[in-house]
Design a binder for these strands. Structure first.
Lengths: 122, 122
DNA sequence: TAGTTGTTCTGTGCCAACTAGAACAAGCAG
DNA sequence: CTGCTTGTTCTAGTTGGCACAGAACAACTA
């Protein structure tokens, strides 16, 4: 349960949290049913504001990653029997290909973003 | 040479331009030597500010995508003989895998972002 | 009942993004 | 050389997102 926040990053703090929790959940590091730290506790340990953590939690709820209930906290949702192995393999392959050509991270992300957007528009 | 800008997008205007030009250049739609529209002309046609276009051009210059010179404009740089086919294939594979599992675009991007960051940190 | 935890509200400060206008310097074409 | 084009640099103002802060409230747990 160790999340790391970089206050000097250009990436918004809440976005960093969202990305880390989502990746951990998708990778299985946070199995369905896992209870995330209470917003106030996490805010204190990360030395950021309560509202920033809550914002991240609400984004994750909107994405269906976690479930929020008062008194119980944020719990990782059980998502079907979907096997994410193909996606993880594809990601690994892409990173390897980009690295082999010395492609900048920004450029690689741009290509994926574009492909996803084009896909979306159909 | 038709770039499209969505003023209502959460993505910054200059970033949209950067992504589109970069993708076009990487895909070969903008062959090395191609001259981009003058900043003032492009700003007028996209109905955005001159400085916003210039900012995008400068980011592209920093990434080595284009070359800027006064009086001549922005020209697409000739970058070696690198064949980007493997990367494009990898991107296509990833998008297909993500789509097959109904993975949200944000989640897919998050996985790639994380993988690139992890790669970067070594 | 008492404590925990998410929800909602108000307000403040900061900074990136965008816009606007202007002057300047390097290159191109006549 | 002259005039035009084009990127570079500067100042300045507006807007909106992000983060922070404090408080009260509602639902759930033990």
């Amino acid at each position: 349960m160790l999340f790391r926040i970089d206050p000097s990053s250009v990436e918004p703090l809440f976005q960093q949290l969202v990305d880390q929790v989502r990746v951990a959940a998708l990778r299985g590091d946070l199995p369905p049913g896992t209870r995330l730290p209470a917003a106030r506790a996490l805010a204190a340990s990360l030395e950021i504001n309560l509202h920033t953590v809550l914002h991240a939690y609400q984004v994750l709820r909107d994405e269906g990653v976690v479930e929020l209930r008062r008194g119980r906290g944020a719990v990782v949702v059980d998502r079907g029997t979907a096997d994410l192995a193909p996606v993880h393999d594809a990601v690994a392959g892409l990173v390897a290909a980009a690295r082999a050509l010395g492609l900048a991270p920004g450029a690689t992300l741009g290509l994926v973003k574009d492909a996803l957007a084009t896909e979306e528009a159909r």
